[in-house]
Each structure stands twice: as C-alpha cells, then as structure tokens.
Design a protein around this nucleic acid. Structure first.
Ligand SMILES: NC(=O)c1ccc[n+]([C@@H]2O[C@H](COP(=O)([O-])OP(=O)(O)OC[C@H]3O[C@@H](n4cnc5c(N)ncnc54)[C@H](O)[C@@H]3O)[C@@H](O)[C@H]2O)c1
Ligand SMILES: NC(=O)c1ccc[n+]([C@@H]2O[C@H](COP(=O)([O-])OP(=O)(O)OC[C@H]3O[C@@H](n4cnc5c(N)ncnc54)[C@H](O)[C@@H]3O)[C@@H](O)[C@H]2O)c1
Lengths: 232, 232
DNA sequence: TCGACTTTGTGCACAGCTTCACAAACAAAC
DNA sequence: GTTTGTTTGTGAAGCTGTGCACAAAGTCGA
C-alpha cells in the first residue's frame, strides 16, 4: 500500500541525476548568454556546484555528448538536457489556493521562461475569485475539474491551507493529473503513478536550526532527561 | 576547496534522519492535539509517510525512547525531537528581499509557531523600505549587519533577485551568520562551516516535467538527434 | 510467577550514489 | 603521421541509506 515510486528507472536515469539536470541547464544557459561555445566538465561542475566526475557520469546517462580533449558544446548540451527534461514542450500549470504564497507564485516571471505556463488560478474564497492577478482571473475552486480538462493542465501546484490540501489533491488526481507540487505542510496520500514533490519551508528551517545548534554547542548538550517540572 | 559539509556527523545523526525528524514532529503534534498518549512506530510511520523500520532506526539515533510492547510516549518524543532539532530555543530570522516571495514569507504565520521569530525585514528598494508588513517595518539593506548583530539573527532567508543573492550572502556571512535559506536560483559559494539550504521551485517543476514526459511517452522518444534546422 | 502477546531496537544484506583514477579518444602542433 | 596534451566516459571501490527479519524487552492477564 505504501509502495514507493521507483519512477524514472524506466530506461535508466537515476533520480539523483534528474534532480541535478536543471542545475546544469541553468549554468549552461548563463554560459550561453555570455557567448561561451564549449565547456569542460570541470568548469561546468564548478558553476553548478558539484564534483566534475559526478557531472560527467550524470551526462553520460543522457548519451555521449562530449568531445574528449575539448568538452561539451554548450548549445547542444542545452538542447539535449532540455529534451530529456521535457522542456521542449510547454506545460500548463494550475495554482490552487491564491493566498500569500499562491499570489507570489502567480506573479513570478521565472516559470514562463522555462516553459511552464500558468493556465489557471483557483481559490475557494468568493472574495478572491474574480480578482485579476498576473493577467489571469482567479476562478472558483468548483471549476477545478473543468479548468484542468479544458486547458490541458498537467501539473498542479497546491498552495491551500493544510486542511484543504488532501481534498484538493484527491480532486485533481480524479481529474487525471499525475504531477503535483505541494506547499501545504501535510503528507499527501496518492495512488501509485502520481508524483508529488513537496516544498516545506518549515522543515528547511528546522534542519538549519539543527545544524546551527550543533555549531553553537560543540556537540549536543548532555541533558538527555526532561527539564524540571515536566512530567511524563 | 569545494569540500562538502560532512556536518551532522558530529556525534552521529545521519543527514537523512535529520531531514525526517521535522516530519515526525509534525505528525506527533497532530496526535498530541487529538489527545493521543502513545503511538507505535507503525502508526507514526504511516502518519509521516515512511517505512516503520526506518522510523525506528531514525528514532534510535536520538536514544532509546520507546517502550517495547507499547510504543512511544507522544509528549516525551515531541520533547526529545524538539530538543534534538534545537526547537526548544527561539531562533531570530531575517528576511532579505521583500518582494513577492519575501512578503508571503513575512505574512506566513507558520514559522512563529515553531520557534522561528522574524526579527527583521530588509530591502534595497527605497519604495519598500519603511513599509509595515506583519507588524515589522522594512529596513534598508544597508542596515543588514547592524540588524543581524543587534537582534541576534542566526538564520537569514535570501529572497532577493538572483543577481543580488551572492552579494547578500557574502555580507551576512561576514556578519557572522552561518545558516542561510536561499530562494534565489543561484548556487551560492560559501566557506566551510556555513550551511546553505536552497528552495528552488523551477527545479521542482522541471523534475515533475521529466516524470510527466516519461509517463506520457512509454519511454523516451528515439529522436536523439537535433531537430531539422538546428545547426551545431 | 508465568506465559502469551506486542513492539522496539538492530544486525545484516543490498541498493543507490559518490568519488577516484585511468584508459581511451580526440585535437592540435609540428 | 606521430607526438603531446587535454578531457571524456567509466570500472571499481567506498559510503550512505533502506528495509527485512528477528531476538530482546517489555506489557498484561491469569
Ligand atoms: N506563505 C508562506 O510563506 C508559506 C510558507 C510555508 C508554507 N506555506 C503553506 O502554503 C500554503 C498556503 O499558504 P498561504 O500563506 O498562501 O495561505 P493563505 O491562507 O494566505 O492562502 C490560502 C488560500 O487558499 C484558499 N483555499 C482554501 N481552501 C481552498 C480550497 N479547498 N480550494 C481552493 N482554495 C482554497 C484560501 O481561500 C486562501 O486564499 C499553506 O498550506 C501554508 O502552510 C506558506
Ligand atoms: N515569487 C516566486 O514565486 C518565486 C519562485 C521561485 C523563485 N523565486 C526567486 O525568489 C527571489 C525573489 O522573488 P520575488 O518574486 O519575490 O522577486 P521580487 O523582485 O518581487 O522581489 C525581490 C526584492 O528584493 C529586493 N532587492 C533587490 N536587491 C536587493 C539587495 N541587494 N538587498 C536587499 N533587497 C534587494 C528588491 O527591491 C525586491 O523588493 C528571486 O530570486 C526569484 O527568482 C521567486
């Protein structure tokens, strides 16, 4: 029942590699803008913040696109990575929950530039519905299924309160969506074949706090027991 | 030079475990609110969306806090995980860059509840400086060092445009900060001992697009070459 | 006190990822 | 054509994380 998604093993690209390809792509685009024609694995790795051997192995999963003694052709590699990631086509994205976060996402220009087109904004609050944000009119959450089907939405961003997230999730999956980006602090239950990626800012801060504490104390304090006054 | 941060290996908690502790904590808090007194690894694992053996192994790194035949005391475990993560103390957080995203973060109530207190909002735009957001007045980015020192800021959130991120990063590190949460789409260069966690929405979408494409085509299309008209 | 039952904590095998190190491949110069 | 120099692609080793499976440790009822 709680089977994990082995995904991406289809014809072989490791998940860890897939997660880094966008990083390489970004570095390559920066180089292309600066007119760089070819780049060595060493330089590209530096720009992407990874080990050069890892970079080469990652790229080798896509094919043999480098030239020994020279490096990689920047434009060609951009094309190959884009194709592998599916960025040569446009993706219609819907944002459900147009509050603080949903608004920020809708107003953000950085998505369209990578082939992610915001095709719908949905909210349950009548006060928000009808509002115009970034050239789109917010629609009522009741229209969810119809918006998804009508506009060919294949990726849904959930930015509702945690309490509504699972319900929204169930509905978009029923409507045929299999890719979800979740900002609500809940573990979404989804059937096999559906990909959920979560962005959880509280968790990130808590991980930072852990390391920060470790840095402050030279190791964990030896107060393993309950503090005074706390009963078990 | 590009040495990785082995961090957290100090007295042994694996990084993967640290990343999951906040998840357990969240599930436990939900249970505590519903009045649950004890919980088995099986049930907690289900709530957190992980394997129960993994959960037990994770918790075993903190100590032997369970009772065989019974499970874990919810309150006690909440306390132990909180302590391990450093959440028994308050952390002062500053947000640099009060645009779309910075505003959403400042207005978000979910941080304060976990001991992360927003202690400063900073922006370089004179139009934004002076604005009051979530009870705080936005200060000028020039005040960065002074705000950090005066208010004991130990975690900085960077929500500036990508072009300003590295510069802001350098300044906060010079001011003594060693924990950074970065939203700008750049790989920040930092010295050893500084922890950077990044949240990159474009990358998340690109990973989803990759899997979505794989699901659409039953495997990758066999057009490995350049499309017509593209020259190398 | 004892035995039946439950659940933890962990040894172990394995799967995946990272890194090193180097042969093979190619370019360029002569 | 040969040599010199550079950089890729990858075998192999090591490391980290996962999950099974089970003994040990505890509860609880009789
Ligand atoms: N704002 C942040 O910086 C931040 C940070 C971390 C996590 N989050 C999480 O992201 C989510 C959104 O945060 P926010 O600050 O934008 O919250 P918000 O309350 O400002 O916005 C939520 C929006 O969702 C709408 N909504 C509620 N139920 C809905 C439904 N069933 N269908 C469609 N829309 C619905 C509400 O009307 C509201 O407009 C929350 O789960 C929050 O925990 C936000
Ligand atoms: N908004 C989103 O949903 C979103 C999504 C993904 C990534 N991002 C990234 O997050 C960052 C912020 O995004 P945004 O939409 O809020 O951008 P924004 O342009 O709305 O806000 C950026 C703010 O930073 C301020 N700023 C610029 N230089 C500064 C400096 N040196 N010191 C302090 N403040 C400075 C600007 O005045 C502005 O107010 C960007 O890097 C963006 O790429 C945003």
């Amino acid at each position: 029942m709680t089977r994990r998604i082995p995904q991406a093993r289809d014809r072989g690209i490791p998940d860890a590699t897939v997660a880094r390809l966008p990083l390489y792509l970004r570095a390559l685009n920066g180089m292309a803008e600066r007119g760089v024609a070819t780049v060595s694995s060493e330089d590209l790795a530096l720009a992407a913040g990874v080990n050069s051997a890892k970079l080469r192995k990652d790229l080798s999963h896509l094919g043999s696109y480098g030239t020994r003694g020279v490096g990689y052709d920047v434009q060609y590699l951009i094309y190959q990575i884009s194709r592998e990631l599916g960025l040569t086509q446009d993706w219609a994205v819907a944002i459900v929950g147009v509050g603080n976060l949903g608004r920020a996402l809708a107003n953000y220009g950085g998505f369209a530039t990578r082939g992610f087109r915001i095709a719908g904004l949905l909210d349950a609050d009548p006060q928000v519905v009808g509002e115009r944000i970034a050239g789109l009119v917010v629609e009522h959450a009741d229209e969810l299924e119809s918006v998804i089907k009508k506009r060919g939405v294949s990726i849904v961003v959930i930015a509702t309160p945690a309490t509504a997230a699972q319900q929204v999730c169930d509905r978009v999956i029923a409507a045929g969506v299999t890719s979800i980006l979740n900002f609500a602090p809940v573990v979404l239950a989804v059937p096999d074949g559906v990909d959920v990626r979560k962005v959880d800012l509280s968790i990130e801060l808590q991980i930072l706090a852990f390391h920060e504490q470790r840095k402050a104390n030279g190791g964990p304090i030896m107060a393993e027991e309950w503090p005074d006054g706390v009963v078990m």
